[in-house]
Design a protein around this nucleic acid. Structure first.
Lengths: 234, 234
DNA sequence: CTTTAGATTGACGCCGCGTCAAAAAGTGAC
DNA sequence: GTCACTTTTTGACGCGGCGTCAATCTAAAG
C-alpha cells in the first residue's frame, strides 16, 4: 500500500519533472529563435503540446519561467567556478580561471546569461515566486562567498584589501559581461576583443592589489585553452 | 507672407515641442510611480489629455519614448562629464570626477539611468526609430571619446596603457552602476556602500596603471562635496 | 462663408496574460 | 466492468495594452 502510493507519487513527480524539463527547453529554444519579446506562454504551450493551463501549473508567469532558466544558468556557473577554484594555482590564476568560468558559462547559453541582470531588477523579482527568489539569492550568495573566500584564504594579499579586491574584480567582470551580452559597438572605438582588454585590466588591478604574478595567468590563449579543457567547453 | 508662414511654422513647432516635453515628463512620472511595467501609451495619453493617436505622432512606440528619456539622460551626463573634465586637476582627479558625474547623473534620475542598459539591447534597439538609434550612438561615442581622450592627453600614463586604462575603468564603473541601479543585496555580504568600494578599487587600478596620486582624489567625502558643488547637485 | 489640408480622435482588431468552469483522465472500491 | 470520487487538463473567456485608420474636427486661405 504505502509502497504503491509512494511509487505512484514518485512516478507522478517523475512525469512532472520531465514536463518541467520540456517546458524549460522549449522556452529556451523560443528565446533563442524569437528573442525575449517573442517568448510567450501561449507559444510555450503550443510547442509543448500542452495547454496553457498546464503550463501555469508549473510556472506562475512568464517571469517565473525565465527565473528558472536563470537559476539553472547560475547553478551551472557555480559548478564551473568550483572547477576553476580546484584547478587554479594561486590567487591570480584562480581569479583568471573563475573569470573564464563566467565567460564560458555565458558562451554556453548567451540567451540566458543576457537575462541575469534583468532578473535582478526589483520589478522582475516581485513577479517571481518566493521559492525562486530564494534560489536566486542562494546562488548569488554561493558565488559571492566563493569569491570573497578566495581572496581571504590566500596569503599574498593584505587583510584590509580583501574586500576591495573582491569588489573591484566583481565590478570589472560584471561591466565586461554587460558589454559582451549586448555587444556594444566598442569595436568602432578600437576595442575589438573586450575579453583581452578585460584580462589586461584585471592584471593591472591585481598588480595594484599586490597579487603575485605567475607564468600562466598572463598568457591569454594558453589560459583560455586550459579553461576550455577543465570546463569541457568546445 | 513668408514671414507669416515661417512664423506659423515655428509656432507649430513650438507647440509640438512643448507637447513632446509634456509627454516625456508624464512618461517619466509614470515610470517613477508605476515602474516600467506600469508605463503604457494609454496611460500617457490619459495623463496628457491627448488621445493615443496624437502620442503616436510623436513616438512610434513605447520603446521610442523610453529611448528619448535615455537620450536626454545621456545628454545631461555628457554635460556633467564636461564639467568634470574642466574642473579636475590631473588624470586621477579627472577620472574620479567623471565617475561622480556618472553617479550623480544616475542620482538625478534613477529611473532613467536604470533603463540605459536595457536600451542598449538589440531587441530594444530594433523597435526604436533610426533617428533615436543614431542619437544614442552619438552620445555613446561622445562619452567614450572623452574618456579615451582623457587618458590619451595625460602624460603620466604609458602610451600602450591608454586603451587598457580606459577600458578597465569603464568596465568597473559600469559594473558598479549595475549594482547600484538594481540595488543588489551586497550589504548582506558586508558591502554597505558600493560607491566607497568602487573608489577604493578604482584607486588600486589607477595605482596599477602608474597614475600619479594626489591630495584630493583619495578623500571620498571631500571629492564628493566638490563634485556636488561643481555639478550643482543637492 | 467655403474649401481644403492637416491635425486629432477613439473605436477597432489583434495579441498575450492569467483564470476558471467544464471536460477528461485517473483511482479505487465493489 | 462499473460507479463514485478525485485530480488533471483544457481552452474559452475577460482583461488590458499595442498600434492603426477612417471619421471627425480645426483652422488657415481663398
Amino acid at each position: 500500500m504505502q509502497l504503491d502510493q509512494s511509487q505512484s507519487l514518485s512516478r507522478k513527480d517523475q512525469i512532472r519533472l520531465e514536463r518541467e524539463e520540456l517546458i524549460l527547453s522549449v522556452a529556451l529554444s523560443l528565446l533563442k529563435e524569437k528573442g525575449f519579446y517573442g517568448l510567450s506562454m501561449q507559444a510555450i504551450a503550443s510547442q509543448t503540446d500542452y495547454s496553457k493551463g498546464t503550463i501555469y501549473q508549473h510556472f506562475s508567469c512568464k517571469e517565473d519561467v525565465l527565473a528558472k532558466l536563470v537559476i539553472r544558468c547560475g547553478e551551472r556557473l557555480v559548478s564551473l567556478i568550483d572547477l576553476a577554484l580546484d584547478n587554479g594555482e594561486g590567487l591570480r590564476h584562480k581569479v583568471v580561471m573563475v573569470s573564464w568560468a563566467f565567460f564560458m558559462n555565458a558562451e554556453l547559453e548567451p540567451e540566458t546569461a543576457g537575462l541575469v541582470s534583468m532578473a535582478k531588477s526589483p520589478e522582475f523579482q516581485i513577479k517571481v515566486s518566493e521559492t525562486q527568489q530564494k534560489a536566486i539569492s542562494i546562488i548569488d550568495q554561493s558565488i559571492l562567498s566563493r569569491v570573497i573566500g578566495l581572496f581571504t584564504q590566500q596569503t599574498d594579499i593584505a587583510v584590509d584589501k580583501v574586500k576591495v579586491g573582491a569588489f573591484g574584480w566583481w565590478a570589472m567582470k560584471w561591466g565586461v559581461q554587460d558589454v559582451l551580452a549586448n555587444d556594444w559597438e566598442m569595436s568602432q572605438l578600437g576595442f575589438d576583443d573586450p575579453k583581452r582588454y578585460y584580462f589586461e585590466s584585471l592584471h593591472i588591478f591585481l598588480d595594484g592589489l599586490g597579487v603575485k604574478r605567475d607564468q600562466i595567468s598572463h598568457d591569454f590563449e594558453k589560459v583560455q585553452a586550459q579553461a576550455r579543457r577543465i570546463f569541457h567547453v568546445n
